[in-house]
Every structure is written in structure tokens, then in C-alpha cells.
Design a protein around this nucleic acid. Structure first.
Lengths: 168, 168
DNA sequence: ATATATTTTCAGTATTTTTTGAAAATTCAG
DNA sequence: CTGAATTTTCAAAAAATACTGAAAATATAT
């Protein structure tokens, strides 16, 4: 595969992956574009490369900045703002993971916790089964969540590497 | 929190979580409903409980059957079909994980692999940076993917439990 | 076989999400 | 300041996704 085809396919595929996992396609594509770019890119560069509107580019860039997985970079003698990606896979995946866990998973975990400990749920077969199932879910998510936190805490995915060596 | 409120909130929250992660809301809600239900439910039961149309219920149920996380169950002397959820968290999350990994992640992994080993990508700074970044991504996804496989292979999440004890 | 119950399909509709583009706001050099 | 360059905002349009409901297909009891 030649460079240009590879680049296009990568950006396209990354966008598809994003949208399948609840990340807006444009946002994923901008990250992909910046990830593989040597130089900082301006909003206009990004608009042109992905053929998207200024509004879309601006809002998507802002979201990536908010996630902390791309940075602003000014270029001397140029009024435009430029952007670069956080290139360390571990760092950006860590950030995405942490933010999404907090925003999306924590509400669920909290609800499971609250239901698990509620004293107001009765003892009928129906209500018991409900509580049992919620508790099981609560335990499971608790475990996964803790493991994820631990993984994310270790620098540069060292723990991940250790685990790999230990178990594979 | 009382049972009815808890049940409603759980189903609602599970639906939201699903849609944030690329799973249709109705599908997630049907799984939630069946998960906490003592008895098998018919299509009509599900339609009524979630106030959705027959078409929607039918198609969503089929998808859950395809994923293998709910089962058909016939009730003696009743012509209707009934459905029960796979209640073992480990089993159903394993199935979802495996299917989504294969459908959505594998195409990306394969592309990264192909680009990583392409002999047609040149040595300009631009193309080198591209290859470097793709290789890093390839290594990372390879590691995560292997760990995931390993986790999913161990029965009942024993490995997960071991990891927890070992590291926390 | 026939009638009835049940399930499936899918064209049309509704809803949600994403994108556009132009106006408004901001920034900054002279 | 002034005005050109740049960025931001957001109402409206477009696109993608999900849902409905009724007709068609299928299954089953008598």
C-alpha cells in the first residue's frame, strides 16, 4: 500500500471506529490526522484535508483540546493557531479512558451502588432477583473499574506490559 | 429508593450507557429488562414494559439473540415465544466483548498491521513519521487485544480476580 | 384444509445527531 | 483607535439512525 492510500484509509478507518464507539467521526478523524502529521496544522489545513466546514472543524478541535489529547501551538510570525496531537498512545488513551469512565460509567456505577444498598427494596421473589442481579453487576463493574484505574495509574502502560509478560 | 423507581432508573440508565457506547438504546433496555426479570418475557410483555412497537421489539430481540446474550424459552401450553437473559455477567460481557472486538476492532488492527509492514511507504520525514505512529499504535492495540483475549478466555473472570488480588 | 395466533419484514415517518455557513465576536498589527 | 485576520457561535439544513405499524409470511391447533 502506498503512503497516500494508507493515510486516507487510516483516517477513514479511525473515523469509523470512533463512530462505532460513540465518538463523533470528525473528531476521531482530526485526531488521526494530527497523530500522523509531522507539523502542526491550522484549522484551515484541517478543513482542507478532511473537506469539512469551518464550524465543524472549530467545534471538533475544541472538543479534542478539552479532552487534552491535542494541544495548541503558535508559530512565530503567524497569527493563525496551530494544533499538534499528543502522540504518546499511552497518554492519550489514558486521557480518553479516564474521561469517558468518569462521564459515562460512573453514573451507572453510582446507581448500581445506590440500588445495591437500598433498604427500601422488598423481599418478594421479583424484588430479590432484581437486587441480586444489580449486586452482581455492581461487583463486576467495581472490579473492572478498579483494574482500569490501576492500569491507567501506572506510567506508560508498564503494568500492561508486565501483565502481558506474566500471562501470555 | 423503591423498587419501581430503581427498576425504571436502571433500565433508563442502561439504555443511555448503551447509546453512548454505540449500542442501540432499545436493545440495551431490553437486555436490562430481561436481566432483572425472574420470569421469561414475551414480545408483548417487552413492548408493554418499554412502550415500543412490535417491529422495534422484534428486531431488537433478534439482535440480542444473535449476540447470544438472551435465549428463547418456550412455555408449555403457550404458543408465544418467551425470552430470558443470560444472567451471568461474565458470560454476556464476554460475548459482547468478543463480538465487538472482532467486528469493529479487528479491521483497524488489520489495517495497522498492513501499513506497518508495507514496503511501499517511503523515507521522507512525513512518511517516516506516519509509519512510526502507525507502528506504535499497532503495538499498543496488539498488546491490549491480547490481554483482552486472555481475560476473556479465562472462565468466570478468574483471571480478572487474580489480577485484582495481585495488584490492588 | 382452514382458521387463528404469532412472528417477521420493511416502506414510510420520526427523531436524533452532525454539519454547514454566514453573522457576530475577538484578536492584533499598525 | 481602525480595520483586516481569525475564531466562535448557532440557527437552519442535511444526514444518519431509530421506530412504527400494517401487510405478508409463518406456525399451529382443530
Amino acid at each position: 500500500m502506498k503512503y497516500n492510500e494508507a493515510k486516507e484509509k487510516f483516517i477513514e478507518t479511525w473515523g469509523i471506529l470512533g463512530s462505532q464507539w460513540g465518538v463523533n467521526k470528525t473528531i476521531a478523524q482530526i485526531q488521526a490526522l494530527l497523530l500522523i502529521s509531522v507539523n502542526p496544522l491550522s484549522t484551515d489545513d484541517i478543513m482542507e484535508e478532511l473537506t469539512i466546514s469551518r464550524g465543524n472543524a472549530n467545534m471538533s478541535i475544541r472538543e479534542l483540546l478539552d479532552w487534552g489529547i491535542i494541544y495548541k501551538k503558535s508559530i512565530a510570525g503567524d497569527r493563525k493557531e496551530y494544533f499538534v496531537a499528543e502522540k504518546d498512545v499511552w497518554k492519550w488513551s489514558h486521557k480518553i479512558g479516564t474521561i469517558r469512565k468518569q462521564r459515562e460509567l460512573n453514573p451507572v456505577i453510582e446507581l448500581l451502588q445506590e440500588i445495591s444498598t437500598s433498604k427500601e427494596i422488598g423481599k418478594s421473589e421479583e424484588e430479590q432477583e432484581f437486587t441480586r442481579q444489580i449486586k452482581e453487576l455492581n461487583m463486576f463493574t467495581g472490579q473492572v473499574s478498579q483494574l482500569a484505574d490501576k492500569l491507567f495509574l501506572s506510567p506508560k502502560g508498564e503494568l500492561l506490559l508486565k501483565l502481558m509478560k506474566m500471562f501470555l
